[in-house]
């Protein structure tokens, strides 16, 4: 099911038959007017709130602009300064990369593990599934980020529990080496959404494959690696793309835990948080626009790489039919 979604996203609208094409030629003219009528709100939004602003922020990224005086053209200066003079930018890049590389795989691993556990016909399965999903609805809120702040503070619950077993961390959110981890845990805690998608994917795997594996005497692990995992790769791929795109843009958790500062020692200075500081605290709109375009390029590049690599490891069962 999700595999179909992935294909629907990646491929153009479904091919039409000859008859449809003929009919389309007849209808195209007559329907274009009506279609544009239905599309009016979307087209206004796409032009005024998407295409226009994209072009504008690309232009602004080559200027100095503080919102009050006219933009001043500086060429590539913003981009050069980002990489040569701005240590906070470089550390925000490394914090964000570390966060993406930790949170996305850990979250998906947890999601898959629990989905495997839940995927059997037992009483209460629906209840458990909902309970696991609940954090995904709540986790993006400021309220939950505040809870994380309190749980991981100096002499908060986690610190006190760790002290009982002899580990003295002195709180996580006030120590640079642990603070990023707190946000990672907040992300992994929300594994319910990808888990539900995994469950849907697991239900799509034909039972014959499992029967065949059982006849061949395959062990559980072997069945998992040779049947379940390959059949699930489209769903893994879909989840991976979504998680990576989203985690590059993580903001609320880091903002709340560090009170908007990104501290301690810039260890929670996520990319979007630094962009916010530059744009909306310092009003360096040109500089922030350059950061935004770099973010877009990186996300496009990573997504492109994932799609390119998918040919090697994503298995679409529909292909060989």
């Amino acid at each position: 099911m999700v595999a179909q979604q992935v294909e629907a996203v990646t491929s153009p609208p479904p091919q039409e038959s000859k008859r449809d094409q003929a009919r389309r030629k007849r209808n195209a003219k007559g329907q274009t007017g009506v279609a544009y009528l239905f599309l009016t709100p979307w087209m206004i939004g796409a032009l005024l709130l998407t295409v226009g602003p994209m072009v504008a922020s690309l232009y602004l990224s080559f200027t100095n602009y503080n919102l009050f005086t006219a933009p001043e053209w500086v060429g590539l200066d913003n981009y050069v300064r980002l990489f040569t003079e701005d240590d906070r930018f470089l550390s925000s890049v490394s914090v964000t990369l570390r966060y993406v590389l930790l949170s996305a795989p850990l979250k998906l691993a947890a999601a898959l593990a629990v989905a495997m556990l839940l995927n059997r016909p037992r009483k209460g399965q629906g209840f458990y599934r909902s309970a696991f999903y609940a954090p995904s609805l709540l986790g993006a809120s400021v309220a939950i980020a505040l809870v994380w702040r309190a749980l991981f503070t100096d002499s908060g619950t986690v610190d006190t529990l760790l002290q009982k077993v002899g580990i003295n961390t002195g709180g996580w959110i006030n120590q640079p080496q642990y603070a990023t981890i707190v946000i990672v845990i907040l992300a992994v805690w929300q594994f319910g959404a990808p888990m539900v998608i995994f469950l849907a994917g697991l239900k799509q795997i034909p039972q014959d494959l499992y029967d065949a594996a059982a006849v061949d005497g395959a062990s559980k692990w072997k069945t998992f690696t040779s049947v379940t995992l390959p059949m699930l790769t489209p769903v893994v791929f879909f989840n991976l793309v979504m998680e990576i795109i989203n985690s590059f843009q993580a903001f609320t958790g880091a903002f709340v835990v560090s009170n908007g500062q990104g501290g301690p020692a810039d260890s929670t200075l996520f990319y979007t948080l630094y962009l916010y500081q530059r744009g909306f605290s310092d009003f360096q709109m040109g500089y922030a626009s350059a950061m935004a375009w770099l973010l877009l390029l990186v996300i496009a590049l990573v997504t492109g790489l994932l799609f390119w690599s998918s040919g090697r490891w994503v298995f679409y069962s529909g292909e060989d039919k």
Partner: peptide, 10 residues
């Protein structure tokens, strides 16, 4: 898939 930030400032 477009990050909001790229249209945010304009």
């Amino acid at each position: 898939m477009l990050p909001y930030h790229v249209v945010l400032i304009p």
